[in-house]
Each structure stands twice: as structure tokens, then as C-alpha cells.
């Protein structure tokens, strides 16, 4: 775990959506969201994004915000959330 509350909250959201059978035992902020990590597919990612929008009061732009970098790990998703909150 980490002391960053945003990262912790996003990781909790991701683990809930992935479920126990997909969440690696050693999951952390740098665990990939998709292959080799939480194994989230596009629908799981959508659910994660919707949960983050609700939790953090941000609105993502589907044209510009979702790419290989922003949807790579819990940490990169947190970076995206931070950038939306600052913006």
C-alpha cells in the first residue's frame, strides 16, 4: 500500500471491479490495469473510469484522456485524475 490517499482509493476501486480472482496478491500502484496485472477489459475499464469520475468529481474527455499511458497503471490513472482536478 501507499500513503497517498488518491492512489489508495483508486487502487481500492480497481480491486473491487477486478474482483478477487483477477487482483494479484502483490497488487500495487504500478501493477498494470490490463494484461499481466488486474486483467481489466474495456468494460471493466469503463466501470473504473465511471467510479473515479463519481469518487473524485472529475469529468474525463474520451477523445483526449484515454490512451496507453493514462490507462497503464493505478498510478498513471491517478496522475490523470490529478491533472483533471488541477485543470
Amino acid at each position: 500500500m501507499t500513503s497517498n490517499p488518491t492512489v489508495e482509493l483508486v487502487q481500492t476501486v480497481v480491486a473491487r471491479i477486478a474482483g478477487p480472482h483477477r487482483t494479484p496478491a502483490d497488487a500495487g500502484p504500478d501493477t498494470p490495469l490490463t494484461q499481466g496485472g488486474f486483467w481489466l477489459d474495456s468494460v471493466h475499464l469503463l466501470e473504473t473510469i465511471i467510479a473515479c469520475e463519481t469518487e473524485f468529481g472529475v469529468v474525463f474527455d474520451p477523445v483526449t484522456d484515454f490512451n496507453e499511458q493514462t490507462l497503464r497503471t493505478v498510478r498513471t490513472l491517478c496522475d490523470l485524475i490529478r491533472s483533471k482536478r488541477c485543470g
Binding site: S42, L46, I50, F60, P62, V63, F66
Partner: peptide, 21 residues
């Protein structure tokens, strides 16, 4: 047409998010 490119690995995330909006 902004959501057509199939080579984008996360294209379905973008499409579904846009649909929800």
C-alpha cells in the same frame, strides 16, 4: 469518426465512455 481507429488498444473504452456521455 473520432472513435474509428482500430489500432488504438483502448478504443472501446473511449467509445463506451462517449456513449455514456
Amino acid at each position: 469518426s473520432q472513435f474509428f481507429p482500430e489500432e488504438d488498444r483502448h478504443v472501446w473504452v473511449r467509445r463506451l465512455h462517449q456513449a455514456r456521455r
